[in-house]
Amino acid sequence: MTFAFSGRGFPAGQEKFKSRIAYAAAPVTADQRAENIPGAPAALDWDATLRFRHHLWSHGFGVAEAMDTAQRGAGLDYPATRELIRRSAAEARSAGGRIVAGVGTDQLPPGAASIDDIRKAYAEQLHDVQEAGAQPVIMCSRHLAATAADADDYRRVYGELLALADGPVLLHWLGEAFDPALAGYWGGDDVVLEIIAAHAAKVDGIKLSLLDADREIAMRRRLPSGVRMYTGDDFHYPALIKGDDLGHSEALLGVLAVIAAPAAAALRALDAGDLGTYDQIMDATLPLARHLFAAPTYHYKTGIVFLNWLAGHQDHLVMVGGAQAGRSPSHLRTLMRLADDAGILPDADLATARARAWLTTVGLD
């Protein structure tokens, strides 16, 4: 297959979006000189990692830091996570950019943990995020999923954590497709809605990553007044962000890390009431997003790093934990074509040179 990339791109805009809140969940760039192999401590290329956050801010997006897109639970250990949040929050202040950051329990060893240990781990990370100056995103905990005896354990843990928060936080429900260890989390939609209703003053919103648009809309309509729905649905985000007569979802999405330029143009069209342009631009990104997040969905991070390499945001394909092996060459070859169709490869010569070199090394040239 011969690639002739178009080089079609969208200019940076910088101004914040007016009608929607939009955070891009950012990946990290590994240090290709370090031992970033499975089981080794994560070593990051800090310059490249932070430079990419400025790229997102330059298009008007907020940064969702240290989320699953940054390989939380998939190679990024907590010491590196804490330093990432600290550095990114400092960069956000210098750039005048929005930032939220993930709070979890991944400093605990894998396996069983007591409810008390889970509460303490959450509280430690909440303190670290607030001290760094980022808004907390309370992520799902594999430890709590494995330990909770019933819905009351979720109510107790989240109730105590929200009481410790300095201000409103985001909750994050990451579905089983993204992390099989989180199957059955909360114990049902009603439980999380009860927790939100009981602590609405401390909840900015909830990010839903269940890849189920109808379920997201149904939950969105049941949220208390003033609590936002943030879509994490990388399959149906254009319609969910656009919304309907009864409301819309804000955005906190991993796919925005690769479609930042066209998505920013679409959101500015939405600000202007130009729904036709919004639909045209966003719909062109959907085939890319659906292939990027195809099953097994948790390997989407490999595709994001691959596309960011093609686009020139980093100089290599090494990932922490050796995660660059998470997608097949045939999957990534299709991803290249869809990326060009979506207009995310503005430097045609660079993308072509890198694509040809990669195709040769994997035997697909």
Rank of each mutant, 00 (worst) to 15 (best):
A260F: 08
Y158R: 05
L56S: 05
A198P: 05
I115T: 11
R356K: 11
V100I: 15
R86Q: 06
S209P: 02
Q130V: 06
H54K: 15
K242Q: 15
R327E: 03
A92N: 06
L144Q: 11
R142H: 13
A342F: 06
D283S: 14
E176M: 13
A64Q: 06
M336D: 00
A26K: 03
A251R: 12
V192A: 00
E65R: 02
D106C: 06
A80W: 00
A132W: 12
Y298M: 13
A294W: 00
V191H: 08
D349I: 13
V320Y: 07
A134W: 05
R356H: 04
T360R: 14
A30E: 10
A151Y: 05
T361D: 15
H291D: 13
A257W: 00
S330G: 11
A30V: 15
L56N: 01
V100W: 08
F3K: 00
V255S: 04
S19V: 02
R221N: 13
L345F: 04
D117N: 12
Q14N: 14
K207V: 05
D189F: 01
R290S: 06
V305G: 01
R156Q: 09
I21N: 07
A95K: 03
M219Y: 05
W358Y: 07
E194M: 11
D77S: 13
G102R: 01
A257L: 07
E83K: 04
I37Y: 02
L270M: 11
V318A: 03
L350A: 09
L170C: 10
F306P: 08
A342D: 12
L267Q: 14
E250P: 03
L317I: 13
G111D: 12
D31R: 06
E15A: 15
T147E: 15
P168N: 14
Y158T: 09
G167F: 00
Q135H: 10
G167T: 11
V255T: 13
M1H: 12
S330T: 15
A357V: 02
D365H: 05
Q324H: 10
L193Y: 09
F10G: 11
V191Q: 09
G102P: 03
H59N: 07
A113N: 11
I195S: 00
R8C: 04
D152P: 02
D106T: 06
V203K: 05
A48N: 06
E250R: 13
Y158C: 00
V258M: 07
S88V: 07
D245K: 14
R215W: 05
I99A: 05
T334R: 12
R33Q: 05
T361H: 15
A134N: 02
L286C: 14
A263F: 01
H199W: 04
A90S: 11
G243Y: 10
I37H: 04
A342H: 09
G96C: 08
A101G: 00
G104C: 03
I344F: 04
I206M: 09
V203M: 02
R142W: 12
A90N: 05
G111K: 12
R119H: 07
R354P: 04
R87N: 08
A348T: 08
F306W: 02
E131N: 12
F293V: 14
L44Y: 00
M1S: 12
F306G: 12
L211S: 02
K16H: 09
I195F: 00
D245A: 08
